[in-house]
């Protein structure tokens, strides 16, 4: 019954569209708080997509994957990020290389390129046939965000978005990776965020700033 509805209302496509919106939103938001919220929203959408696919495909191990995703990406990582942001006293991106409206336009352009490029060569069939474009767009837009921002914590958020995109691509193309692999990736990610948090506070101590353009001084 539920599975039928999911198919009928193309829930999966809606959710992936929501993920795309959240990444574009992140790209234009300047407040760190907003970026973290966008990431949490993106993760919730990813988790709900997993849940929906679990119902739709009746694959029990996807329930477990959705559960892990909620625990790590929706609750754990945003919490850690918020604490780090508070500790570092960064509230907003002060002067990015590219201004907000321009970067929003650029992200639209990126999404357009992705859609036009992927519409030609690759044809994906199956339950998530429209997810690949969304996944690649998420990866590229978040990479673009990382490129134009200066604060280290934004870079971390961009990286996390990229990982969400990869996760989306991985599980929508393969009907879910083995549980062990997913668990390993999530654990890696969580550890990565913790370590990055420590590093950021160390960088702050050393350079009195978390602006990454100061790192140019390190060049030999």
């Amino acid at each position: 019954m539920l599975a039928k509805w999911i198919g009928l209302f193309s829930v999966i496509d809606f959710i992936s569209a929501g993920m795309l919106v959240s990444v574009v939103a992140m790209n234009s938001l300047k407040r760190i708080d907003g970026c973290i919220k966008a990431y949490a929203a993106n993760s919730w959408l990813l988790a709900s997509m997993m849940g929906a696919s679990a119902v739709y495909l009746s694959e029990p191990h996807l329930y477990a994957a959705a559960f892990y995703t909620i625990a790590v990406k929706c609750i754990g990582i945003p919490y850690v990020l918020k604490r780090v942001a508070k500790e570092l006293k960064v509230t907003r991106e002060t002067d990015p290389y590219v201004s907000g409206p321009v970067s929003t336009m650029a992200s639209f352009a990126l999404v357009g390129i992705v859609y036009s490029a992927l519409s030609r060569g690759i044809s994906v069939t199956g339950f998530a046939q429209n997810s690949l474009e969304v996944a690649v767009s998420i990866i590229l837009v978040s990479l673009f965000t990382m490129m134009i921002r200066k604060k280290a914590i934004t870079q971390v958020i961009g990286l996390l978005f990229m990982e969400n995109g990869l996760f989306l691509a991985g599980f929508s193309l393969t009907r879910g990776m083995p549980t062990l692999v997913e668990l390993g990736v999530l654990f890696d990610l969580f550890m990565g965020v913790l370590i990055l948090g420590v590093f950021l506070s160390q960088i702050k101590k050393t350079f009195v700033s978390v602006d990454l353009d100061r790192l140019t001084n390190l060049k030999g």
Partner: peptide, 25 residues
């Protein structure tokens, strides 16, 4: 190629990815 600026390196990556996407797809 190495300016020391992280953002520039990310730019290289983005350009490479875009080029590959457009050329191969």
């Amino acid at each position: 190629l190495q300016s020391g600026s992280l953002q520039l390196y990310l730019g290289y990556m983005l350009l490479t990815l875009l080029a590959m996407l457009v050329l191969w797809a």
